[in-house]
Every structure is written in structure tokens, then in C-alpha cells.
Computed example of a mutant assay.
Amino acid sequence: MSSTPKHEIYEHLAEVAQALGHANRLELLEHLAQGRRSVDLLAELTGMSVANTSRHLQLLRRARLVDAERRGKQVFYRLAGDAEVVSVLQTLRHLAERNVAEVDRIVRDYFDARDALEPVSREELITRMHSGMVTVLDVRPEAEFALGHLPGAVSMPIEALEDRLAELPKDQEIIAYCRGPYCVMSFEVVSALRMKGYRIRRLEEGFPEWKAAGLEVVTD
């Protein structure tokens, strides 16, 4: 039986799906959604060996999900289309939360237990930013903040929080954001600041989704 054009397309789609079908590769895509990264740094961030990290990245590259660039002795990777790849990850997340009972349980037992308040939507945050009625807090590491952040955001990594509390206003609501909807750091910051009397909520998603939506991003 000869292959039809539709079948050939499905075969290529299956290759992309296969590349996405590994937890470590999904985590690598989350880190690359923050900005370009070297193989060495990605290995450090994920706790994998450099060799294993490189193998996963090569599979993602063959599926055209990431691009690579060599600079001297180092190879740097980035998403092959921020909007498209982030959109696929968003769809995968929504589908799993709706259809996979274990994912729904983890979201309720871990994330919702740490922050029962409804997060702020992207549209709501934009409105508040325009009115100047909110302080936007970026809790990612400083290196990720430098690669790109929301306009007017204050960089305050979680490890610096206790030493810099005086910089945060208690008379204005704070909106914190992180790497994405499953980023533990934003939940921890929200919980810690709320216990100290600050009015703080989370952004519903994170920096990658903001950037993928075509909204303004500031780089240092």
C-alpha cells in the first residue's frame, strides 16, 4: 500500500509528538522558553549530565522544536519559534489537567494548597500595569530576568526575598510571575509574602506565555 500525503504528514507529526514524549525534554523546553541557553547550563539547571542533556536536545532539534548555534567551544540552543512551541506546551498542559486524573490531583494537592486565590490573568495584569496600580515581581534568577522580563518588573529572586522586603510596598498589590504555571518559586514567594501581610497574587501563567503572546518584553 502506497503512502498518502496525509499519512506522510501524520508520520512527521508523530515524530514531533515522540520528541515531546519525555519529561526531561519538556523541562528543557521550559528552560529554553526563558531564552537561549548553552548545553552546559541546561545540564546544570536540569541536573542531568552534559552528554544526556545533549542527546535530548538533539532529539528536539531533529523534530524542529529547537535550533542550535555553536559559539567557540559551546553550543547554544533556543526554541524554534517561541509562540508555536509554547502554544503546544500550553495545549499539552490543559489537556493533561482536564483528562489525566493524576495531573489534576497534583495541581490540587500541591499548587492549589499553596495558593487558593485565583491567579491574575494576563489581560487583567495589562490593565493594572497601564493604571500604575500594581507592582510586578519577577522571581526568576537574575540571569533569566536579564534575558527578558515584563515591562517595569522588579527582579527579586526567591533567595534574595528576605533581605529585600523593604523594597516592596504594602499599600499596593503585588503580582508575581515566574517561568510558567508550574513554577514552584512563584507559589513559595506568594505564600511567604502573604504571611508577612503583603497583598500579593500570582500571574496565571509566566514569562514564556507573555512573550509568546507577542506582548512587550524588556531585555537587559
Rank of each mutant, 00 (worst) to 15 (best):
T4I: 01
E8V: 06
V16N: 04
Q18D: 03
H22V: 09
A23W: 07
R25Y: 05
R36E: 15
L42G: 06
A43Q: 02
A51Q: 12
H56Q: 05
R62C: 10
A63W: 10
D67W: 10
R70A: 15
Q74I: 00
Q74K: 09
V86D: 13
V88R: 13
V88K: 13
E97Q: 10
N99W: 06
A101R: 10
A101E: 06
V107S: 06
V107E: 04
A113L: 02
D115P: 07
D115L: 05
A116K: 08
P119W: 00
R122F: 00
M133N: 09
V136M: 02
D138V: 09
R140P: 14
R140N: 14
F145M: 10
L147I: 09
L150W: 05
V154K: 14
E162D: 15
A166M: 07
L168S: 08
P169G: 08
P169L: 10
E173V: 02
I175F: 05
Y177W: 04
C178N: 09
C178R: 13
R179Q: 15
S186P: 11
E188V: 15
M195D: 09
P208M: 12
P208Y: 07
E209K: 05
W210E: 01
W210I: 00
K211F: 13
A213W: 01
G214L: 10
E216L: 02
T219P: 11
